[in-house]
Design a protein around this nucleic acid. Structure first.
Lengths: 209, 209
DNA sequence: GAGTCAATCCCATGAACATGGGGGTGCCTA
DNA sequence: TAGGCACCCCCATGTTCATGGGATTGACTC
């Protein structure tokens, strides 16, 4: 028997889901709250469901802020976002806050049920649109590739800088003179509008090159 | 009608899936290959399925390397990994290579079919275990937080370094003397066993602090 | 075949950094 | 209450870096 809770300010939705889940043979949903504050006040180590369905657009504390606290206090409770939002920011903020699933509000009841069961089996329920966006996060981004104004050689030099090498060591690694390294770095600085290797390393590691 | 292709060296699996998919009213699976090389030789702009199911452990060119090429040449063809591997490296390498879905080899035929349909609707089919690992990627990692040997002030200084500031500017930002900045940086270098700000920036941005 | 451009080298100067020493003041904890 | 630790400041030395000027070569374009 999986114990489920729901934090959702729309009473109709909340009670509807509670009623549906309580009707399932393997689920119970005794925990229903209209706000994150109410939920946090009620939960204790010995009084916490296995799974929490959380709306993002709550009055008072937001679902995302709430999840950070919940994740900290009750790491064994799986958090599932239940929201109308499907934009990147909301999705990634939720995942970074500790959500283990993300279902859109148009998800049919039976799929919510399946999602909860999937959680128990080590899965992560996501609406299709959400899954696609999460996957897209890893996709190579060609667009940024071409805007790099650096030549191949200059990029090699940047790698050396990122590795923390001195000009001398970069020269040795690339089998060129230290003067050539100097020359390239001058041009790198010009192209990137920076004035020191620290900024080059930052830009590089942040993917701005 | 969705056109599907499969690249899989195990003939039994390949023909089995082809037969099943061809039996579906809304799918066709005319493209079957035993290796990535064979597939790449056959595909043309006018001769490419909508969806490609790809095994990772192929003889010759690996599925991951192949996907990189496919993604480049045929960006409109959705790639779905079909593999026994469920380790982080394989998963993320696949996604970075351009996979839009990832199904484990124990996936029943009907779920493969549903996955393909989901793709067409903008979804990203993933086996539950895979979805969980992808989601976990975003989860906050507390464990590394405490091992940082740097004091609070030192961390502030590191932020300044990462921002590419000179000692003077860091001093101004923190309202302390440049000599104090020097002092802290000396200690930072000692603690991190490095000998220059470049290495500090690298370590910091790589999450090693 | 003149022009552009990346890449290779050289020199010089001032600024910034790395590293080694000194001093202090507080706060906490044994 | 002494020792440890984080924080604050100062000095001196040598190294590395940033930036400006040059010059040459080969490849590719027009």
């Amino acid at each position: 028997m999986i114990s489920v809770g729901i934090i959702e300010d729309d009473e109709q939705i909340r009670t509807g889901i509670q009623a549906y889940l309580n009707n399932q043979i393997n689920l119970s949903c005794e925990y229903g709250y209209h706000s994150m504050e109410a939920a946090l006040a009620d939960f204790k180590d010995w009084n916490i469901p296995n799974v929490l369905i959380i709306d993002l657009g709550l009055p008072g504390m937001s679902g995302i802020d709430g999840m950070k606290i919940l994740r900290e206090r009750f790491p064994d409770c799986d958090l599932v976002v239940f929201s109308v939002f499907n934009d990147y920011k909301k999705i990634f903020d939720s995942l970074c806050a500790g959500a283990t699933g993300y279902l859109l509000k148009n998800t049919p009841f039976d799929e919510i049920k399946e999602g909860i069961e999937s959680l128990a089996k080590g899965g992560s329920p996501m609406s299709p649109q959400i899954a696609r966006k999460v996957i897209d996060f890893f996709k190579p981004q060609h667009k940024l590739k071409k805007i790099s104004p650096l030549s191949d050689k200059e990029k090699e030099i940047v790698v050396g800088l990122v590795d923390g090498l001195s000009y001398k060591l970069i020269a040795d690694r690339l089998s060129i003179s230290i003067e050539t390294v100097r020359f390239h770095i001058k041009n790198i600085y010009r192209k990137l509008h920076v004035h020191g290797k620290a900024e080059v390393i930052s830009k590089s590691l942040r993917g701005e090159i």
